[in-house]
């Protein structure tokens, strides 16, 4: 017996398994970042003083990174839409762009970290720096994870398009949902760390 609803939606719930699965996973991610944001708020409210992010961190670089991530999000959703429209070539291009934007994000981030270290700014310096490094570090790990999945779907995983196109499209959708979530987290991290 095969496992049902791996490709088609179950009639009464309207979903295929992995769709529900990824949303559940994202729900748990919301709680993970929720705890981190909660820690940030609690520590900040309790602190006698708190630096403005812009006085320590580089807003232009972070703005650039925001742009890179939202671009990667739109190319991600376009890659899925291309598969829906049966345009495999366009899918490859869009997903490739997503990967490049992600890579760009990581490069900019590494410049940012490098600049901090060269000014001898480390996580242990202050609660602000601790929060900055921990939150962005965890976010970077999420970006990396997403890129590994995307790279697989761009490269070896794409063979599935020939054998099981619908299931492959589902996979891309699921990977996309995760990738957009990573973007969404950054949309909050950016003002919270850099602008406030």
């Amino acid at each position: 017996m095969d496992i049902p609803y791996t490709v088609d939606a179950r009639p009464d719930t309207g979903m295929y398994n992995a769709k529900l699965g990824i949303w559940l996973f994202l729900a748990s991610e919301v709680m993970l970042f929720g705890a981190l944001f909660s820690s940030y708020i609690l520590l900040r409210v309790a602190a006698p003083e708190w630096p403005r992010g812009a006085s320590i961190l580089s807003v232009p670089l972070a703005t650039l990174n925001t742009m890179l991530l939202i671009s990667s999000s739109v190319t991600m959703v376009m890659s899925w839409a291309s598969l829906k429209m049966k345009k495999f070539g366009a899918y490859r291009v869009y997903l490739g762009l997503t990967l490049l934007f992600g890579l760009g994000f990581l490069i900019v981030k590494s410049f940012e970290y490098g600049a901090k270290f060269s000014h001898h700014l480390y996580p242990g310096d202050s609660t602000f720096m601790a929060i900055y490094f921990t939150l962005t570090g965890l976010h970077v790990l999420h970006v990396l994870g997403g890129m590994i999945v995307n790279a697989y779907l761009w490269g070896p995983g794409a063979k599935m398009w020939k054998t099981a196109p619908e299931q492959f499209t589902n996979r891309v959708e699921v990977a996309g949902l995760y990738w957009h979530f990573v973007d969404l987290v950054w949309i909050f991290l950016f003002p919270v760390l850099y602008l406030l």
């Binding site: 939202i70 999000s73 959703v77 996309g176 957009h180 973007d183 969404l184 949309i187």
Partner: peptide
């Protein structure tokens, strides 16, 4: 911004 991403991209 977040709700735009969630509503449309997701």
């Amino acid at each position: 911004k977040g709700s735009l991403v969630a509503s449309f991209f997701m």
